[in-house]
């Protein structure tokens, strides 16, 4: 863009930069505030109106939440479901996407079947009944199987496979490789970066999902971290945290700081993968919305 030295342009530029900075701060403020308060002492939290930097930093809230068997168990459940679920979703999506990227008999019908789910959802109750009917109720598989393939990811991955150079495939066919071998030995290794991106999106989706656990799990021993967070922070039922762990603490920290510590801990995995997500998502959004 042309550099201009007009005063009005400078005013415009600085206003714009300052406003954007303020917007960015609004996005960050809740995180910073929770971070600061989660390390504060009870006395300071109660006394200070705008607690931005605690005078004394204590780990009470973290000791408390990480000492809770229920919270640790929910983290374990969530990690397990996220890892297994991501692998299952990726494998099923890649297999189906590859089969549909080839000129297989009935290809158009199958693709239409997938696309139709974009515009017509089956509905919550019938899906619930099918999950019940297939014996997944109160099983961790209920968090993995019913949403295993995202139609959107499937279509985008199929487009990706179609875009791969076909020379390698042709060479392999001449060498007598079958389609399973081509898929596992050529296509998958070639698609590692794309698979990593799809995997990240599946993983974030599973980690964050609350609805499936709400619908399909009633056994508190199987609750995911999102369900426990809701009990703890939104419903304020901190009595759910086992009582036994408070034994060692004469003065348990306030529910507020414990809640903030819990939220931050549950968000750390997202923050860790965020830089990788960011690298890929713009591409993904564009692939999905602007078709060639």
């Amino acid at each position: 863009m042309l550099k201009s030295n007009k005063l009005s342009d400078k005013v415009f530029d600085y206003t714009n930069i300052i406003l954007l900075g303020l917007i960015a701060l609004t996005m960050l403020f809740p995180f910073y505030y929770m971070f600061a308060v989660s390390f504060a002492t009870y006395e300071e939290f109660v006394k200070t109106d705008l607690l931005l930097f605690p005078k004394t930093w204590v780990l009470d809230a973290y000791e408390y939440i990480l000492g809770s068997k229920e919270f640790i168990r929910s983290l374990g459940v969530t990690i397990y479901v996220t890892v297994v679920g991501t692998l299952v979703s990726l494998l099923l999506t890649a297999m189906m996407a590859y089969a549909l990227s080839r000129n297989i008999l009935g290809q158009k019908i199958y693709v239409f079947m997938v696309l139709f789910t974009f515009v017509f959802g089956a509905g919550m109750i019938p899906t619930y009944m099918v999950v019940q009917g297939t014996g997944l109720m109160d099983s961790l598989w209920a968090l993995i199987i019913p949403g295993a393939i995202s139609s959107f990811n499937l279509i985008v991955m199929r487009e990706f496979f179609i875009g791969l150079p076909i020379d390698l495939t042709e060479a392999a066919i001449i060498d007598g490789a079958n389609d399973l071998q081509i898929f596992s030995k050529i296509i998958l290794p070639l698609s590692k970066p794309a698979l990593a991106a799809f995997g990240l999106f599946y993983a974030v989706g599973i980690w964050n999902s609350y609805f499936t656990a709400l619908l399909y799990l009633s056994d508190p021993a199987k609750w995911t971290v999102q369900v426990v967070l809701r009990q703890l922070v939104i419903l304020n039922k901190s009595n759910l945290l086992d009582v036994g762990m408070q034994a060692g603490m004469d003065n348990p920290p306030p529910a507020e700081t414990v809640g903030m510590a819990a939220i931050l801990i549950a968000t750390i995995p997202i923050l860790i993968v965020y830089p990788f997500l960011q690298k890929h998502f713009a591409k993904g959004v564009m692939l999905g919305s602007v078709k060639e």
Binding site: Y33, M34, R230, V233, I234, I263, A266, I270
Partner: peptide
């Protein structure tokens, strides 16, 4: 990329 539980948890706390 944050879950709704986290967002509404934050809102509740604030």
């Amino acid at each position: 990329f944050l879950s709704w539980v986290v967002v509404i948890g934050i809102v509740t706390i604030l």
